[in-house]
Amino acid sequence: MKEFSHLVGWALLLIALAVVPLFVHSARWIDFLEMTLFVAVLGQGWNILAGYGGQYSFGHALFFGTGAYIQAILQVKLGFSPWVAMWFAVSGSVLVAASVGYLSFRYGLRGSYFALITLAFAEAFLVLSRSLKSITEGGNGIQVALNQDPEQAIATFQFNFAGPFLSEYGFYYTIFIILIVAFAITAWVERSRFGAQLVAVRENEDAAKALGINAFRVKMGAICLSAGITATCGVYYVQKFLFIEPGIAYGPAKSVEALFAPIIGGLGTLLGPLLGSIFIHGVGELTKATIGQALGGRPGVDLILFGTILILVLAFVPRGLVGLLQSGWARLTGGRDA
């Protein structure tokens, strides 16, 4: 019964996400929806490693940026098709994740030490991407050539001039499909032995080892999966904005965005990153439109509010919006768990 109602809930949610852009005709609001799903996927990538695995990365920009740079470099410098480049982008990012994971997990770095190591690697890559000018064009960033031929829209993975429907909705449905894949992977993690072992490592690593779990291997699996999902966000970013530069790729902004949504939405839950992302973007737009306007359109008001919300959530709803919904639902249905 519980399984069934979960399935129905997810089906309704996905249908809603599938049709909602059809009721929206302003490009600004389509952008808003795209960015909401984009951050939900970014958050889900982080959530697999941190929410389920308890390994709090503070440098997920490392995986986002590596995916984005490989996608851009292979297209611009080597003339790869974007559809081929993306596989290299994802695998390259996974390879970086495996190296960072090997170094940290082999030597048993946990908690804040792991967070610092990931942050350090992201910063190192930021410096590298600025200085390796022959490959990355340094601070100027890499520009992917804009395709204006509608016939080539699919081949170039650029929907800006793709004709009536695609040019409007192409990127929305791209990120929607990525979201479905990322969430399906996470749903599999939740129901698999790998996921059970990952959660066991999060809860108590020594007990997990005593019960026959190879904690090192489980954590390596998690960081690779996490990086793979995060790298698809990098691929998406490059195709949509046709531009990448060091600050966007490896700066701390993406690392923070990746952890913000799942923490607010509910750590280690499937729905958490999506709920969190919807909440953050909704509140962000609302503040910009109300308080921001009242203060004369000054930027940054939403950021101050985000900080406040994050503190409040961590202090009062550690299980996030999902936890809030679950206890609300339990109260409504008279105590049985949701």
Binding site: S192, R193, A196, Q197, A200, A208, L211, G212, I213
Partner: peptide, 12 residues
């Protein structure tokens, strides 16, 4: 307990 059982059993 299932975490222990997974040492021998792959299926959830």
């Amino acid at each position: 307990i299932a975490v222990g059982a997974h040492t021998r059993i792959a299926n959830r």
